[in-house]
Amino acid sequence: MQNLLKDDERLDYLLAESLRIIQSPSVFSFSLDAVLLAKFVNVPHHKGTIVDLCSGNGVIPLFLSARTNAKIIGVELQERLFDMAERSITYNNLQHQITMLHDDVKQVTPKIGIEQCDVVTCNPPYFLAHEQSEKNTNEHYTIARHEIHLTLEEAVYAASRLLKQGGKAAFVHRPGRFVDIIAAMRKYNIEPKRVQFIYPKEGKEANILLIEGIKYGKPDLKILPPLYVYTKEGEYTKEVSEILYGE
């Protein structure tokens, strides 16, 4: 265990999946957004290739490994997060299924293969580079949360280049960028097919957007029922509790 963890890292449970993940409060800890995206996206059960862009500490590849036997590739720019992801994958004995690439999303497509992938997931930076009031003074969090190295449009373009015809791309973002993400998806031939808005609780505005599209798909957008995270009493709703902790 001592060789597994570095500095202020800890080994957390992914409860519903019976997996463990290395996290660090000063570098990166995954949020509910990643969990919801991993549950939202449609994935092949057996064969195929799934690519997760902006993987962070590998949380989405780990979650997806519990849903599919397909090959999973994670792409992460920050070396420290890439290293954490690799150690988590090894700890869970998933090296046969999950591969991490320490690379830039904008440059990685030729290395994975153009139009070779069945599914692409992405939890991209949410905030524009100039949104100074939202910036975190921690460099790791700033890069993960702000469009310093990767914009929303660049993330959608990368996903489109990776996907086969009929392949699926799924993103999680802020509802305020809904029009932007729709525009980018259509610009790069990913037709939006499923959208779900996540609300902190009933009576509040949505604060998370999940969207999935199909490469060269036909127009037919479905708005899924809303998902509420907390009850009026401040407890997780039944739906979210099942996502986090299992049945």
Rank of each mutant, 00 (worst) to 15 (best):
L5D: 06
K6D: 13
D8I: 03
L19W: 07
S24D: 05
P25E: 09
F28S: 02
L32R: 08
A34N: 04
K39V: 07
V41N: 01
P44W: 10
K47S: 15
K47E: 15
T49W: 11
N57A: 07
I60E: 03
P61M: 10
R80C: 14
M84K: 11
A85V: 08
A85M: 05
Y91M: 02
N92A: 04
Q97S: 11
H102S: 12
V105A: 07
Q107H: 15
K111N: 04
I112A: 06
E115Y: 09
C117Y: 10
V119C: 04
P124M: 04
P125F: 00
P125M: 04
A129F: 08
A129R: 13
A129E: 09
S133Y: 14
N136Q: 12
T137V: 11
N138T: 08
H140M: 11
H149G: 13
L150E: 02
T151W: 06
L152I: 07
E153P: 03
E154A: 14
R161T: 15
L163M: 07
K168I: 14
R177V: 06
V179M: 13
I181T: 02
Y188R: 10
Y188P: 09
I190T: 06
P192N: 07
K193G: 12
K193M: 14
R194W: 08
R194I: 09
R194T: 08
K201Q: 14
G203Q: 03
E205I: 00
E205C: 02
N207V: 06
E212I: 06
G213R: 01
G213A: 00
I214Y: 12
K215L: 05
L224M: 04
P225S: 05
K232A: 13
K232W: 05
E242F: 14
